[in-house]
């Protein structure tokens, strides 16, 4: 799993990879010794209760905060030092929509066109139409679902290799949630995008995730291919999650810490 090797073909390098990663929020540690690997072209779901941990972790993945310990590689490179280059190949949908509230969808697409080397404005407009997001209303005046849809459209506009979603269904009704994931699936099917989703909404990702990892306390309580885990236990994802998250980290059997 040496991500720096230049003789390895690009597709062998995991889209996201961490090794004993530790993350702090202020002075409080929120993640300790996290080791995971997201193969290209897969859908990886990081599950866990809602808290500061997952969002801080994503900020570290995106090179917006430094790691407190361990290593993280995004598309094979250190995101803290190579952020600008990497973000050209990564799309991000944050938990809180962060677009400037006074700009319309059209203006935002134009802004992103200037911030990115390549931008498919037509595809973005088509997505917005599909989502029924008005193109000329200020971002701040859109509904939550429309904002999320717009953020997703903007995240896909530069055809990223990796799509990072932080709790994309928070506060959305079922219809909006389905629309979001349909869009993600479509993109994934068209281009083989790697998708990393951090969420606590199990129903949403159950059919979609190739791999899951369950974050409990500060550590990974369980990780592995979803189908295999379900077959092994004969349980649904919800049941697996409850069994793991319901127990304390110290009660987890040794074999479950890593897959």
């Amino acid at each position: 799993m040496s991500a720096e090797s230049t003789t390895t073909s690009p597709n062998a390098i995991p889209a996201l990879e961490t090794e004993s990663l530790s993350v702090r929020y202020g002075s409080t540690p929120v993640v300790d010794g996290l080791t995971l690997s997201v193969p290209r072209g897969t859908v990886f779901a990081l599950l866990g209760r809602n808290g500061a941990g997952k969002s801080s972790l994503l900020r570290v993945f995106l090179g917006q905060r430094p790691a407190a310990g361990g290593r993280v590689r995004l598309l094979g490179q250190d995101p803290w030092t190579r952020r600008t280059a990497i973000m050209a190949r990564v799309g991000v949908v944050p938990e809180e929509p962060d677009a400037p509230p006074e700009m319309t969808a059209t203006q935002l697409s134009a802004l992103c066109a200037r911030l990115n080397a390549r931008w498919d404005a037509a595809a973005v407009a088509e997505r917005l139409r599909r989502f029924e997001v008005p193109a000329d209303r200020a971002f701040g005046r859109l509904s939550k679902g429309q904002k999320g849809a717009l953020m997703l459209s903007l995240a896909l506009g530069h055809s990223p290799e990796l799509l990072l979603l932080d709790d994309p269904t928070l506060g959305l009704d079922v219809v909006a949630r389905d629309a979001v994931f349909q869009e993600v699936i479509g993109d994934l099917a068209d281009r083989g995008t790697t998708v990393f989703v951090s969420t606590h909404d199990l129903r949403a990702i159950e059919g979609i995730a190739d791999q899951v990892a369950i974050l409990h306390g500060r550590r990974l309580a369980l990780a592995g291919p979803l189908e295999a885990l379900k077959a092994e236990r004969g349980l649904s994802l919800e049941q697996i999650f409850a069994s793991v998250a319901g127990t304390r980290a110290s009660d987890a059997r040794p074999g479950e810490a890593r897959s």
């Binding site: 995106l62 973000m87 944050p94």
Partner: peptide
């Protein structure tokens, strides 16, 4: 308020 994240999530140095 997170808006700086909009720029930092994009290839802007």
């Amino acid at each position: 308020n997170g808006r700086l994240g909009f720029l930092f999530s994009r290839p802007v140095s």
